[in-house]
Computed example of a mutant assay.
Amino acid sequence: MTRIVAIFIVFLYVGVISLQAQKKPKVVQDSTKNFKLIALPVLFYLPETGLGYGGLGLATFRLKGESKSSRPSAVQLGITFTSKRQFLFFMPYEIYSDDEKWRFIGELGYYQYFYNFYGRGINASIDDLETYDADFPRFRFSTLREIAPNFSIGAGYEFDGFNVIRLADGGLLENSNEVGKEGGTISNLGLLAFYDTRDNIFFPTKGLFIQGSAFTSAKFLGSSFSYHKFELDARYYRQLKGKHILAANAFLGTRSKNTPFLDLNFLGSKRTRGYNNRRFQDNTEVSLALEYRFPIKGRFAGTLFGSTGTVSPDIGAAFSSAYKNAAGAGIRYILNRKEGTRIRVDYGLSSEGGQFYFTINEAF
């Protein structure tokens, strides 16, 4: 019942926002070009959080000197409070300069929230669900330079200062030997490279995006852990006819031993909508997601999506592991036709039930 209440509130809210959004976004001329700001209130209810409320904002702009045909820079801001004294602040950003030759990507955030823990592996039982509270500041920053057409390389830094509190007394996590269950600092340095021919960062209609990253813990920068990780994220977009789009996302991520459990790979994210967040987690994730995106009427559009994925202790085991499937559908409301920004409302369904998602822009 509470899930239905949450869904009803958000759909009602989307309807109200849809009427309000018919007005053109306010344009402010500053030291940046074409600055546009979109702000949305958020209201939801879940048993784990109680009443939640806050706001989401998205600013798009082009730095001074950038051409109007270049990709816009973007800064997203979210602030959420709950009646159970939980708090989330997140500000991911993607900044372009020098005709897109420089790209700065990262996130500032502070999280005081609950998280799910079922144990490790693809066979973790749903009956073992327990939650734990964690609060941490987050800082992500990567700088990349284009060295060949559409190909960029760069360096990055990750920081999370975890404080894990309120473990279930005598529970699965408390009795485990998971690294990081008492908290600690993640401080990692890494290298990144990507190839990007997408025509739009918010709503690609064609092109290819492939990003590889390798990070390792930096003891001299205060890391509490000693581990390394590698990720390969590939996305493909093709325009079928008119505004009908096919999108695909293949992902491979692997971590070494001694990875803190808070930084494990997991199913239940954007790629595998339909499972509880962190439902299955382990060192390695292999997943594939497909989406069919289509217009409905006016500013409204829809999507059908499906995914399959697994987690395992290492890469070798991933290809003989059981895979979990999910599928679903969603509605989009286009806030800015030129840049492609939109409200995303999705419902993902798996063998364990359904999950509801409400946020800004596409999952990938």
Results as ranks from 00 to 15, higher is better:
Lys64Arg: 04
Phe114Asp: 03
Phe117Met: 02
Pro72Trp: 09
Tyr93Glu: 01
Ser69Asn: 14
Ala59Gln: 04
Gly57His: 06
Arg138Cys: 01
Tyr115Ser: 14
Leu58Trp: 04
Leu58Lys: 09
Ile126Tyr: 01
Ser142Thr: 13
Arg85Thr: 13
Leu63Ile: 15
Ser73Trp: 02
Ser83Ile: 14
Tyr93Pro: 01
Lys68Gln: 14
Lys68Trp: 06
Tyr118Ile: 12
Ile126Val: 12
Leu144Trp: 02
Arg62Leu: 14
Ser142Cys: 09
Trp102Ile: 09
Phe114Val: 13
Asn116Ala: 12
Glu66Arg: 14
Glu130Met: 11
Ile95Glu: 00
Tyr93His: 05
Gly78Pro: 01
Ser70Gly: 08
Leu88Tyr: 04
Ile126Gly: 08
Asp99Lys: 14
Phe141Cys: 02
Glu66Pro: 13
Phe90Trp: 03
Thr80Ile: 14
Ala59Val: 07
Trp102Gln: 05
Lys64Ser: 09
Ile95Arg: 00
Ile95Trp: 04
Tyr96His: 06
Phe89Glu: 00
Met91His: 02
Arg71Cys: 02
Val75Glu: 00
Leu56Ser: 13
Phe87Glu: 03
Ser70Lys: 07
Trp102Glu: 03
Arg85Tyr: 15
Arg138Pro: 00
Ala74Trp: 02
Ser73Phe: 06
Asp127Arg: 12
Tyr111Asp: 05
Glu130Cys: 12
Leu56Ile: 13
Glu146Val: 09
Tyr132Phe: 15
Arg120Thr: 14
Gly109Tyr: 09
Tyr93Trp: 09
Phe87His: 01
Phe81Trp: 07
Thr80Gly: 06
Gln76Asn: 07
Asp98Ser: 13
Val75Leu: 08
Leu77Ala: 14
Glu66Ser: 15
Phe61Cys: 00
Ile126Trp: 00
